[in-house]
């Protein structure tokens, strides 16, 4: 990104206040962040720090109180497929098959621009991308948690989003499945070059996947505490990184932020 070029996604002085009856709670305080095209950014923080709220603001599912979110210089006011979301609990529609879950998104986004056959191929292509084409006729209840999340990712990717938003996408998975899916996401990111924002509370995950890690202070009135550049070459190999000093330093920096300076005081 040259200095004159406008950043791809801008979060400018965003405040978010939730009002319940007479009480107002400020969840996010003056968040500003620029994200370049193709960048993979993780947002990490303790639970309750408003990181999911921040993602919902970018998704347009929640409206900012003050400030603005700009994507390619256009203000984000409502949700849309160019900011596809991979939800924490996969959010597949249980009455549709795996194929139909992706196809409904493909039909909605490409209904006018692609032919029926192209939409079918594109659906299968995206299921292939997450290695789920073999289960295309199964219903969500018949596949494992990791597989559901893969389908959720396929559905989001199938919308060809400008920004891929992931809300703790691997949070509900066991450690082995999680590692497997992280590798998949890295491969897909390398292949497609999507701009991605991922919410996480897993330090290793953040360091492994991200170009930058945004660390949030504890809420209420959470702010961006620090932003860490992860200066590791891609493609990254989980096993090789274990001993890499840059990896260890990055990990240490995030851990120190989370557990020394911004220790979570309340019991989670």
């Amino acid at each position: 990104m040259t200095p004159t070029e406008k950043p791809f996604l801008q979060i400018q002085g965003v405040h978010k206040t939730f009002r319940r009856g007479a009480t107002e709670t400020e969840v996010l305080h003056d968040i500003s962040l620029d994200i370049a095209e193709g960048e993979f950014v993780s947002i990490i923080g303790h639970s309750g720090c408003g990181k999911s709220t921040l993602l919902n603001l970018v998704a347009g599912l929640t409206r900012v109180t003050t400030g603005a979110v700009l994507l390619e210089n256009r203000e984000v006011n409502d949700p849309g497929p160019e900011r596809a979301v991979v939800f924490q609990n996969h959010s597949l529609l249980p009455w549709l098959t795996v194929y139909e879950n992706v196809h409904i998104a493909v039909n909605k986004v490409f209904g006018r621009t692609k032919s029926r056959a192209e939409r079918h191929d594109w659906t299968l292509h995206n299921l292939d991308l997450v290695q789920m084409a073999h289960a295309k006729d199964k219903r969500p209840a018949e596949i494992s948690g990791g597989m559901k999340q893969r389908v959720g990712i396929a559905r989001a990717l199938a919308m060809e989003p400008k920004v891929l938003l992931m809300d703790e996408p691997f949070g509900a998975l066991d450690a082995l499945t999680r590692a497997h899916l992280q590798d998949s996401v890295m491969q897909i990111h390398a292949r497609l070059g999507n701009t991605a924002i991922m919410i996480t509370h897993d330090v290793d995950e953040a360091v492994l996947l991200s170009d930058r890690i945004v660390m949030m202070t504890n809420g209420p009135s959470a702010r961006i505490g620090e932003v860490l550049d992860v200066d590791l070459p891609r493609p990254r190999e989980r096993l090789e990184l274990v001993a890499d000093t840059r990896y260890i330093q990055a990990r240490e920096a995030v851990l120190k932020f989370l557990y020394e300076r911004h220790r979570f005081v309340e019991a989670a």
Binding site: D78, P79, P81, V85, F87, S91, L93, W95
Partner: peptide, 26 residues
């Protein structure tokens, strides 16, 4: 969750009725 999916996909009210509401409330 389903409402969010419908919003991200920008389903119109009729699509929402048939694709989300009726099956979910079935």
């Amino acid at each position: 969750d389903y409402r969010n999916v419908a919003e991200v996909l920008r389903l119109n009210p009729l699509e929402y009725f048939w694709r989300i509401m009726i099956p979910s409330a079935a």
